[in-house]
């Protein structure tokens, strides 16, 4: 919050105010039409495309001096890209940063939703590589926009049908498509499908930024978000037979860690803040 802490020669949060206003207009439209992809005049950012430039632009557009920012990548605060983005915003806004989910007013994420349920007033900003859920069925943008306009979504179920026919299961494990507010099919960004249920009727505002593809979309608080499925093959989330090797959680999303060349592996929580807090609580009870 101390203006002296902002890197010299740069505006608060890097982008100029006109650009931020333009992004906020796109965000307002996105909130008004849940799940609809709003084109916006994405800017070059000092990180490569695909590394979170969309999420960063959204964060830059909404962050204020009183915000408290948390940045995660793969659920963890200590992954290199999260460290890099957090340092960037600390450098260019001077706002407070945190690793604690409940403390953050603004959370930028890549590939995860925190395990701890989000609260009203929190904003979750997703980094999105490919915003178009129909892209891998229909590469042409002209066609996919038309399909959205006409709610021509039969092809989405073709993909799910083929998965079941070939593998006996719906074989999409991440970036699992959802229907937002009963209208738009949306790509939730490459979060594991484990996190999909957290999007449904969340009290937090969820914003999605795709920098390279220049699209913004949103899920306003308390909006229906349904994962596509079949009646006789309902949507299910991943489950592990193992618990977290550190905190023992049986409920969280687990990362596999390889211990030796024989491929012996252990599982640990992907959400480092969640894992740490559980350990602290365990220590207190002991």
């Amino acid at each position: 919050m101390n203006p002296q802490t902002i890197r010299e020669g740069y505006n608060f949060a890097y982008l100029d105010e006109q650009t931020k206003r333009m992004i906020r207009r796109a965000l307002l439209k996105a909130v008004a039409i849940p799940g609809y992809q709003v084109p916006f005049g994405g800017r070059e950012m000092p990180m490569p495309y695909g590394w979170g430039t969309g999420g960063m632009q959204v964060t830059a557009a909404v962050i204020g001096q009183t915000d408290c920012l948390k940045v995660i990548d793969q659920g963890a605060d200590d992954t290199t890209n999260a460290v890099s983005i957090r340092a960037f915003f600390r450098d260019l806004t001077g706002v407070k940063t945190t690793e604690r989910t409940e403390e953050a007013t603004l959370i930028q994420t890549r590939h995860r939703i925190p395990e701890k349920p989000l609260q009203a007033g929190q904003v979750l900003v997703y980094q999105v590589p490919i915003p178009e859920p129909l892209r891998f069925i229909e590469p042409s943008e002209v066609e996919t926009r038309k399909m959205h306009a006409l709610e021509d979504y039969g092809v989405m179920h073709i993909k799910l049908y083929e998965d079941i026919a070939q593998f006996g299961h719906i074989a999409t494990a991440y970036a699992y498509p959802v229907l937002v507010n009963g209208r738009y099919v949306m790509d939730p960004s490459p979060i594991p499908k484990f996190d999909n249920p957290k999007m449904d009727n969340s009290p937090a505002l969820q914003l999605f930024g795709a920098g390279r593809e220049k699209r913004i979309y949103a899920i306003p608080p308390y909006t229906d978000v349904k994962s596509l499925d079949f009646e006789d093959h309902p949507f299910e989330v991943q489950k592990w037979e193992q618990c977290c090797a550190i905190c023992g959680s049986a409920e969280s999303f687990l990362d596999e860690v390889i211990m030796d060349d024989q491929g012996t592996h252990e599982f640990i929580c992907s959400d480092t803040d969640y894992c740490r807090e559980r350990m602290e609580n365990l220590e207190v009870t002991v």
Binding site: Q74, A76, T79, V257, M259, I268, S270
Partner: peptide
């Protein structure tokens, strides 16, 4: 693909 693995992540 793995957060940690034998030999580690070496940037």
């Amino acid at each position: 693909t793995y957060k940690d693995l034998p030999g580690g992540q070496v940037l």
